[in-house]
């Protein structure tokens, strides 16, 4: 079961919801001794590119099997540009892997400057001017076309570091964290590698993915393949505008969607009306609570710190899991294999 937490607009409370949801469900599953999964099937490759096709996975490394992580709930921080979950969880790290992208390297002994590599490159990452080959690795998407199609076999590939994936444990949860290096532009390869590793973790019954803001490729990469996407919004004109775009994104991805309204007592009722018109289930209305804002400011989760919030998030989690299980059957019929 994969639950993603996303939003068009930044700062609506995605990380707060993802972290507290994982903590509240983790506590309740430990309490009852039953993992919150309902069908026990593995989420591996659910809606994902088949194994071996994701770039970094093929090029480098295996999912950290035998890495000592417990089964059950896995929290994945997929906001690789600005990851924040670890600030609240303070995990004990168990491993780290550098994520790289294969970029071209030209053997000038073999190159006859035919320019085929430059012709096939869709990203202008390689240019041939008479007897000079210019490489722009920061523009390269790592498609491998130049290397594959060079008639003289003069283009090899070298790994270019983009960021890293780390994993560890916190509060009885398994935790995966992706991080783009500052100055790097391409987030999606890091997200792809992160998800491949987290979803490949042994016994991952419930995977909660904290997605980046926005609706373009980094958010798509994080949300793709979820059984349910929770869109966190706030009842303001900015919140509504960005929620509308995020709903378009999840529709395009064919991911069932529900809404969490945060700071539900500020602003106006336009978000509520929108959800009503679009038949979007509103799973929670979280009130503004100064104590929650203060614990957030200090980097502490609300669950376990502010009375009443563990119950709120447990209830949200149970409703989300129910909805995800209900839509999962439908989703599997749609899945092309």
């Amino acid at each position: 079961m994969i639950l993603s937490v996303a939003s068009g607009k930044g700062g609506t409370g995605k990380t707060t919801v993802a972290v507290n949801l994982a903590l509240a469900l983790g506590r309740s599953s430990r309490g009852s001794g039953v993992p919150p999964s309902n069908d026990g099937s593995s989420p591996r490759n659910n809606g994902h590119p088949p194994r071996g096709s994701g770039l970094p996975l093929r090029e480098h490394g295996q999912p950290p099997r035998g890495s000592g992580l417990p089964p059950g709930i896995v929290l994945v921080d997929a906001d690789v540009e600005e990851p924040n979950c670890h600030l609240f969880l303070r995990p004990r790290w168990k491993g780290r892997e550098t994520i790289t992208l294969p970029v071209p390297e030209v053997d000038l002994e073999r190159c006859d400057y035919c320019g085929r590599c430059a012709d096939v490159c869709a990203y202008s990452a390689i240019t041939v001017i008479r007897d000079v080959v210019l490489l722009f690795p920061e523009l390269c998407h790592g498609c491998g076309g130049c290397s594959l199609l060079c008639p003289r076999g003069a283009v090899a590939e070298r790994p270019r570091p983009l960021g890293s994936v780390r994993w560890g444990r916190a509060e009885g949860l398994s935790f995966y964290h992706g991080e783009l290096d500052p100055g790097q532009a391409l987030a999606p390869p890091v997200t792809r590698a992160l998800k491949a590793r987290a979803l490949g973790a042994r016994g991952a019954d419930l995977v909660i993915v904290d997605a980046p803001p926005g609706t373009s490729c980094p958010a798509v990469e994080a949300v793709r393949g979820s059984d349910l996407c929770l869109l966190v919004t706030e009842p303001t004109p900015f919140g509504l505008s960005d929620l509308t775009l995020a709903v378009e994104m999840t529709a395009k991805l064919d991911v069932p969607t529900a809404v969490v309204i945060n700071r539900a007592d500020a602003g106006d009722d336009r978000v509520d009306r929108f959800c009503g018109e679009r038949d979007l289930p509103v799973l929670a209305r979280l009130p503004f609570d100064r104590r929650v804002a203060e614990t957030y400011a200090r980097g502490r989760p609300a669950v376990g710190a502010v009375p009443g919030w563990e119950e709120r998030f447990r209830e949200l989690g149970e409703r989300a899991l129910g909805l995800a299980a209900a839509s999962r059957g439908r989703g599997e019929k749609r899945c092309r294999t």
Binding site: H48, P49, P50, S53, G54, L55, R58, A122, Y123, H141, G142, C143, G144, G145, V220, R224, K252, L253, R336
Partner: peptide, 23 residues
Amino acid sequence: RFGAVIQAADGTADVEPLACEGC
């Protein structure tokens, strides 16, 4: 390398547009 090509049982291929990076 983007997992954008999906092959049916008979081998014929189709492209998942959201995964395709247009390379």
